[in-house]
Design a protein around this nucleic acid. Sequence first.
DNA 1: TATGAATGAGCATTCATTCAT
DNA 2: TATGAATGAATGCTCATTCAT
Lengths: 217, 217, 217, 217
Amino acid sequence: MSPRTREQNEEIRKQRKQEILQAAIRVYVDKGYSASEMGDIASQAGLAHGLVYYYFKNKKALFRELYEVMMEESRQFTKTFFEQEGSVFELFKNYAHIVCERVLEDPVIPRFYMRISLDLQHLYTPEEFSPFEWVKNFMYPMTQAIEKGIGQGTIQPGDANLMAMQFWGSVSQGMNYLDQVQQELIAQGNPETAYKEQLKKILDQVVESSVSLFKPQ
Amino acid sequence: MSPRTREQNEEIRKQRKQEILQAAIRVYVDKGYSASEMGDIASQAGLAHGLVYYYFKNKKALFRELYEVMMEESRQFTKTFFEQEGSVFELFKNYAHIVCERVLEDPVIPRFYMRISLDLQHLYTPEEFSPFEWVKNFMYPMTQAIEKGIGQGTIQPGDANLMAMQFWGSVSQGMNYLDQVQQELIAQGNPETAYKEQLKKILDQVVESSVSLFKPQ
Amino acid sequence: MSPRTREQNEEIRKQRKQEILQAAIRVYVDKGYSASEMGDIASQAGLAHGLVYYYFKNKKALFRELYEVMMEESRQFTKTFFEQEGSVFELFKNYAHIVCERVLEDPVIPRFYMRISLDLQHLYTPEEFSPFEWVKNFMYPMTQAIEKGIGQGTIQPGDANLMAMQFWGSVSQGMNYLDQVQQELIAQGNPETAYKEQLKKILDQVVESSVSLFKPQ
Amino acid sequence: MSPRTREQNEEIRKQRKQEILQAAIRVYVDKGYSASEMGDIASQAGLAHGLVYYYFKNKKALFRELYEVMMEESRQFTKTFFEQEGSVFELFKNYAHIVCERVLEDPVIPRFYMRISLDLQHLYTPEEFSPFEWVKNFMYPMTQAIEKGIGQGTIQPGDANLMAMQFWGSVSQGMNYLDQVQQELIAQGNPETAYKEQLKKILDQVVESSVSLFKPQ
DNA sequence: TATGAATGAGCATTCATTCAT
DNA sequence: TATGAATGAATGCTCATTCAT
């Protein structure tokens, strides 16, 4: 066996970190930061728990990194999404649609966002991060889009940050509802085909309602 | 000296329990269930930590009681509120207005509701409480009102549970925003009079947007 | 109401102490020293738990006093008993008989003696009390009687302390057995008359066996 | 360095568990269940107290296991012993002799048995374990042997369970005495050789007396 | 890299004891 | 005397983290 090259090693290292973060998110959405145990995360990832410390300095560092990765991903997605051409109103509609569809396939992500804002204080000092700043950051591409829409007259005027947050509140409660209804239907033993249609109707309502927040009277 | 009468003792007990629950809620909104320490709660209440166990069997029991008290209060308020006469649409408008005003005086309550649904699993077994049931329960008076509004044609038709949740999502994100803006303004040292007006405008927008979810097209 | 006289007060005080000690012994035979809680003892006595401290300095003092009272009583009884005229052999026979009969009426006493020697270290420092001394003290009247019997040739010669202990071991295991059989029979719902005879036979065997330890070959 | 093999780990685990149980028994014979602290056990074993919980779920589980190990060992020994060929009477004589000799080398075992029956209620619920059943179980091989002896006419007839208990009571008080005398002699600074003879005499008396319980008149 | 045994700070909880009334 | 609210030292237990292999 020839020893692994540096590249191979780095590749493995990167992969392992990914695995651990994946495991962490699964544990996290269930338990939240304080109740998530490093041991759970390691088992979930199929590793000896000591090994986690080889990849992450400590629990806080692991979760900071998890947060930053998730945030970056979502920011990237949102940014790209709202930079698209087209009616701002339609953009928000499509956006709501897409994130709702995603939740039905993998509910981990919205559950992550439900929790994380409440746990940021465990990860960052107030100097490092105010929840206010956080929201502004997270919402930035939407806020921009809303302001553009206001300029175009397709969105009623007002505080764009607030609108973005309310839109997000409406969408995320909608996702929540979709998630729970889906779980309920699965728990009752329904086959997937049986409830697809039902979920689709709910999804459409979520989208329509959410964008109604923007409608000029 | 003769010992305290039974009435005196009952008075003391009632008072102390209240104080402890008040302290618990303050700690809780900051830290969440797992990170809330019984010691913190005791200090916050200005009591020896042993005393907390004189009044509550253990941490879980304390938080269960806190939850149930808060829930009952809110359910009572919401129920009474939505049983009032008058246009359903106006009721929701007033409701949003009132809860938003309350948050500016005492932000503890919305912060409590932000967290609690994520912590219920620590307090109850799945058999005792499914989050789905919880939401349905919590939202029940609103859902009823929405259905009434749909019947009257003043609210657009749809899944009333979902609408209630989205309304709640929109309002609570709005409260959140109000809370944060107020904190920001206070942190900057502004005197109350200086920002009252600004907050009022935001509040109005929160209300208007939230009820737009119900508007028939 | 005229105030109580000093005599009345002292009488009450004495009585209360007795009540507390009675309560203590009941708790003690069940739980042992460390697991006996002052609160249990107070409830058992029907008193507020603070009051116990008015009568006894602390837990250790209470149990020391309990021990000393019990010891004195038993020493008095044994001493008087073995100072009687008559055949030493018959004395031991009668002694075994009496203590066995007592256990059927009130099993608390032998249970107390089963435990107490193991708990003395919690009550006294080694300087104050060695278990060896304790046994010698407790057994003294018996030892004396045995030596007398040896002198008379009615008891086989040997280490009288040891003989007393083995006699005691045999009797107390016998009492144990009687106690347990009686409990078993009661638990099965038998009426008292039904098992009296059975217990009597066991009792006789306990007595006969125990004194056989002394028989000269 | 490569990590330890599975075999190495299993070896370590087995060893550590043994060490902890050994430490526990030493603490236990001194203090009893309630007063034995997990910290004491850990220090006694020379380990961090957290480690004890790595090997045993909690205090109760540790002591249950200790009890079961000791019980199994003793049951095995007694069973094998009394299944030997030969005069039943001689068997009991030899048995008494052996256990008494053992106590002089390692007094921990009889001390353990002195205490444990009083602590079983802390370890098991009444449904799991009645003291009556316990004794019957513990004594079973002896009881069997006694019944055989009665059948052969070498032991006087009677309740075999009771006889076994009284025999045990006599032997264990004898061991107790031996243990205490030895301690006393050691405490006085006597060298071993000086008191060997004295202890031997006591031991012989213990044996002779104990078996006299079985002698047919 | 990888494992899992070992450590110990930290938190929940209990209970003897004190104290205001 | 009597009550029961209040205190805090002590103990059981957990879990993040380290370390020998």
